[in-house]
Every structure is written in C-alpha cells, then in structure tokens.
Amino acid sequence: MQGVDGSGTGSPIDPPPAIELRSVTKTFVLESGEELTAVRDASLTVARGEFVCVVGPSGHGKSTLLNLIAGFIEPSNGEIFVNGKPVEGPGPDRGVVFQRDTLFLWRRVAANISFGLEARGVPKQERKATVERYLKTVGLEDFAGAWPRQLSGGMRRRVAIAAVFANEPDVFLMDKPFVGLDYLRRAQLHKVLLDLWAEGGHRAVFMITHDVDEALALGDRILVVKEGQIVEDVEVALPRPRSTYMITGEEASIIRRSVVLHFGDLEIA
C-alpha cells in the first residue's frame, strides 16, 4: 500500500524509507538580490530505525537540509518524502530538537512534555502516563512541577528531548542538540538519547553535529555535507553499546580520517 502512495521506491510490500530526498536543491535570494544555493542536488535515503549523523563545515547547508526535511522551508527543486509521504510543511511525524532552547518557559516541565500529546488530542490519562514514563527515562521525575528557568542547561536539554520523543514521531531531527554542554553532560545525554532511540525501535534519527567523535559514538552512518552537497556517506560498523575505547580505536580512526579530510587538510601549527 505504501509503495503506491508517492515514494515509488521498493516493492509494494517493503515499507518506504523513513527519509528520502530526491535531487533536492534549495536556493535563497538574498536582500542584495544575489542567489545563494544552500543545498545542491542532494539525494539521500535513510532507512527506518537508522541513526544518521551529519557533519560538515559551518554554513555549508546542514541546517538547511534539516529544515527542508522538517518542512520549515520548501525546496526550490526536487522532492522530499517521509515514510513515503511528500513533505508539506511541519508535522508531528517529524520531531525536531533545535540547537536553541525551545522549552515553553510558561509551562512547567510535565506540561512541556505533554504539549505535543495535547495538540494531537491524546486522552488525559494516557498523556499523564506517557509524560511520567519519559520523565523517568530522562531522570527528571522529581522535576515534573518545575519551571524551565529552575533547571540547569543539561536538564533543559533532557526535557526538550523527552518532549519530542514523547510525541512519538517517526523521524527525529536534531540540530546540534548538545552544543555548549561539557563532555560529561554530553556523554550522559548520549546515553539518554540512545535509550530513547532503542525504545522507539523504528524511529530514524537525523542529527547534525560539529563533533566527529559524537557522530562516531552515536551514528549508524555519517554524512559529510560540504558546499551544499552530500560529499561522503560512511557506514559506522562499530557494535553497540560503544565505549570510549571503541570510538578511539583503529576502525573509528579510519572513519574519522575519511570524514575530517573533507574539511580540508588543515595545517595546524
């Protein structure tokens, strides 16, 4: 059934990929009238349940790519499908964790997590149970009644992730979600994220990061985006759970080198 609903990929019994981009280009017209092509002829398939990390230099189109999949902006050319359905604006099938803090400051922690559930008309009892479950998963069950301003940066990140996961989207889009957190906090959040991801089963994750080590710790695949194009697509065939030893080992080093070299062969003093 899903094979005939638009994506056209695979046989009728195969589920469509979680994310599919077909020759997507996005051009912005600047105030000066000049055109800027942020994403150039990008094609990509992300399978259900796959964890994809996207790295690349700043300003080379990573966030534009995410915004296109989220439906916040429309492609100038090409097509985008999520679970076989063409993307037409934002929707609850794609949860987004932003780099910026998006917690609703006027809602307490529990109410932040239940926002999406309320919006989708989930009954109150079910909502309560879901919120409690996710608060527990992210270790914030004592803070259900706190205002966001009473939480630390790391705790706020956890609420943001819980709020998006609680809404049970099929695709999870994350734009540098752990920027500005120290190493330890990040490692904790990686664990939270991987637990939630494993719990969700079929959910695909598309996560932008500046940190190749983070991509090695989390991703099934690493994409390198440079000058608006996907220039590298490497599989990270490391077993899970991954230890620090594993992501600094020989196999990881080969992947790291192939990724980092796309940033240019920098001469470091």
């Binding site: 439906g71 934002p90 929707g91 987004v96 932003f98 910026r100 998006t102 999406g116 809404n167």
Partner: peptide
Amino acid sequence: VPLHYWQYARSLGASPLR
C-alpha cells in the same frame, strides 16, 4: 516572538490556532 517557537509547536502537531 522567536520563529523557532512557532516551528517547534507546529512540528509537535499543534494547529496554527493552537
């Protein structure tokens, strides 16, 4: 009001009115 609030709420399934 920052645009990302709007985007975030819409991506959680909230209608424009909500």
